[in-house]
C-alpha cells in the first residue's frame, strides 16, 4: 500500500476572503503541504478570486482541476458550481450532485473525502461563516485521526460556522485568525 497523501483543507464562507488573505499571507514560503480550499463566497468567478488571493499569499493560488494531483506548496481553490472531492491517490474529482447544506461547492464534501484519502495526515481548518457547512466534515477528519483547527468564534466575522464546528466536531486547536498561519507553519515544518 502506498502512503496516504498529506494535505491541509480549509473551509470558510461569509467573510472568507479577508480570512484567507490573512491565513495564506502568513504561511511560510516553503510550506510543504498542498492546501485545498472551499470558500462559498469566493467561487462565483474563481479566476479573479484566485488572482486576488495570490496578491496576498506567499504561495501560488490556482483553481483545482479535476484529475490533477494536488501539489505541495500550492493553494488549490474549488471551482464554482461543483463539489470538489479528493480521491485516494491525491487527485481531485468534481461532481455536480445536489447541494449539501445549500452549498456547492460544500466544505463537508471536501472534508469527508479528504479524510478518507489522507487519514491522519490531514489538517482541517474551519473559519468564519454564517451557516453550518463543514462541521460534519471536520468530525470525519477527527474520527479518522486528522487534526482540527477552528477559528475562535468570538474572533470570526461570522461566528455561526466555527460555533457549529465546535459543537458538532470539537477541535484540537481553537485560535484567533492571526494565530492560524503560525500554527500551521509550526505543525508542518
Amino acid at each position: 500500500m502506498s502512503a496516504s497523501p498529506s494535505a491541509v483543507v480549509m473551509g470558510c464562507s461569509a467573510g472568507g476572503m479577508g480570512a484567507l488573505r490573512t491565513v495564506l499571507g502568513g504561511l511560510s514560503a516553503t510550506f510543504p503541504r498542498p492546501v485545498v480550499v472551499v470558500c462559498h463566497t469566493g467561487s462565483e468567478d474563481v479566476t479573479t478570486f484566485c488572482e486576488l488571493l495570490e496578491l496576498a499569499s506567499t504561495l501560488p493560488v490556482r483553481e483545482a482541476r479535476e484529475r490533477q494531483l494536488m501539489m505541495p506548496g500550492v493553494v488549490h481553490m474549488a471551482p464554482s458550481g461543483y463539489h470538489l472531492l479528493l480521491e485516494r491517490g491525491g487527485r481531485f474529482s468534481l461532481s455536480i450532485d445536489e447541494r449539501v447544506s445549500f452549498a456547492r461547492p460544500a466544505i463537508d464534501v471536501l472534508f469527508d473525502t479528504a479524510a478518507s484519502a489522507c487519514g491522519k495526515d490531514l489538517i482541517g481548518v474551519l473559519m468564519t461563516g454564517a451557516n453550518n457547512d463543514g462541521a460534519a466534515g471536520l468530525r470525519t477528519i477527527r474520527r479518522l485521526g486528522g487534526l482540527a483547527i477552528v477559528q475562535d468564534p468570538a474572533d470570526a466575522q461570522a461566528s455561526a460556522m466555527p460555533q457549529a464546528a465546535l459543537e458538532i466536531a470539537g477541535a484540537d486547536h481553537v485560535v484567533p485568525l492571526k494565530g492560524i498561519a503560525p500554527l500551521l507553519n509550526q505543525l508542518c515544518p
Binding site: 474529482s93 461532481s95 478518507s116
Partner: peptide, 9 residues
C-alpha cells in the same frame, strides 16, 4: 466510476 463521489451516492 470515480470512487469518492460513488461512495457518497
Amino acid at each position: 466510476y470515480a470512487p469518492a463521489s460513488f461512495k457518497r451516492r
